[in-house]
């Protein structure tokens, strides 16, 4: 209700005695209703984060320690109203070092922490009721990072070397039985489309692999080198297995090899980098011989042979 309209209503009621009596009774009824409601018993809860202190540096917790503690209160509405009005602490402190006192395993009853919530009305239950501490010496391991990726390049562009990751390996610390299972850490999926320039970015590691383990990083940076490609073509003779050379004549005896290659690499490629061989199956006598690219230089993409098969003549 706007301030102006409230005053207008007040002015209109000023001279109306019946309305005054009605509203006074209504107010009294509300007060009684609030009073009776707050006199009844209720339950309420307040959740507060837990802060663990003094965990031994060279030990690792075997289980996931709870991050929050629920304080459950029961009592009259008045009491619980006051509980909610209190300043709840930012966090509940558990001094693990003091608690364990040299031990490595212990079950701790959280009810002992109830006094950390200020006020006279204390919690009657804390959830979880028990926190199990179990520490084992930290084992260490360094594992390589593997990037999961799907990369599509624009036409005439392609990858110019390995994808660089920084860091390319991650240090892990945790219980030995968990570390033994891990040989590498994978990243989340990186999807890149229509690349024509080098791509930089960061990607998170897959969290699930790191359950119960501490890692020196939770993400890595990647660099995808990209360069322009050109189409190359080389014509070369088709080779035959040594034992068949004198007996078989091929038609045609030359093949065109076409491929995509980076412009920089293109100049370094020569005919001697390739070898195409006609496969002669024995004892079958096929209609055509299939050609196979046995050797070709690094960094070539979309390699095609033309023709893929050749005719042949066997001389007796």
């Amino acid at each position: 209700m706007k301030k102006g309209s409230f005053f207008k209503l007040f002015e209109r009621l000023k001279g109306n005695q019946k309305a005054w009596i009605f509203f006074s009774c209504l107010l009294l009824a509300i007060v009684f209703w609030v009073f009776t409601s707050l006199s009844r018993n209720y339950e309420t809860s307040i959740v507060i984060p837990i802060s663990y202190r003094n965990i031994p540096f060279s030990h690792h917790s075997d289980n996931n320690l709870p991050k929050r503690l629920e304080f459950r209160f029961s009592g009259s509405g008045f009491e619980l109203f006051r509980v909610h009005l209190r300043d709840a602490p930012d966090s509940i402190l558990i001094d693990v070092g003091k608690l364990l006192n040299g031990l490595k395993n212990r079950d701790f009853q959280t009810i002992k922490l109830r006094n950390q919530f200020p006020g006279e009305h204390v919690a009657n239950k804390l959830v979880p009721e028990i926190i199990s501490f179990s520490f084992t010496p930290r084992d260490l391991k360094k594992v390589p990072v593997k990037i999961n990726h799907t990369i599509h390049f624009q036409q005439q562009f392609g990858q110019a070397g390995e994808i660089i990751l920084r860091p390319d390996s991650i240090e892990l610390s945790g219980p030995q039985h968990l570390l033994d299972k891990i040989t590498s850490i994978e990243t989340q999926q990186v999807n890149l489309k229509n690349l024509k320039t080098p791509s930089f970015g960061s990607v998170f590691l897959v969290k699930e692999q790191l359950a119960g383990i501490s890692a020196s990083a939770d993400y890595v940076y990647y660099y995808v080198p990209v360069e322009q490609y050109t189409e190359g073509m080389i014509e070369l003779p088709v080779e035959l297995p040594v034992s068949q050379r004198s007996r078989i004549t091929l038609f045609p005896n030359k093949v065109k090899v076409s491929f995509q290659v980076s412009i920089l690499r293109y100049r370094q490629i020569s005919e001697s980098d390739f070898q195409v061989v006609a496969e002669v199956p024995f004892p079958e006598v096929p209609n055509h011989l299939t050609l196979k690219l046995k050797r070709y230089p690094y960094g070539l993409h979309q390699i095609r042979l033309e023709p893929e098969t050749v005719d042949y003549l066997i001389s007796e």
Binding site: F57, S58, G97
Partner: peptide, 24 residues
Amino acid sequence: DEKQLLHTQILQMLHKIQPVSEDR
């Protein structure tokens, strides 16, 4: 330098800073 483990060096440092930490 990506050769020496960081964890090991850090633990050694922490033990020098607070040698009693393990007995707390």
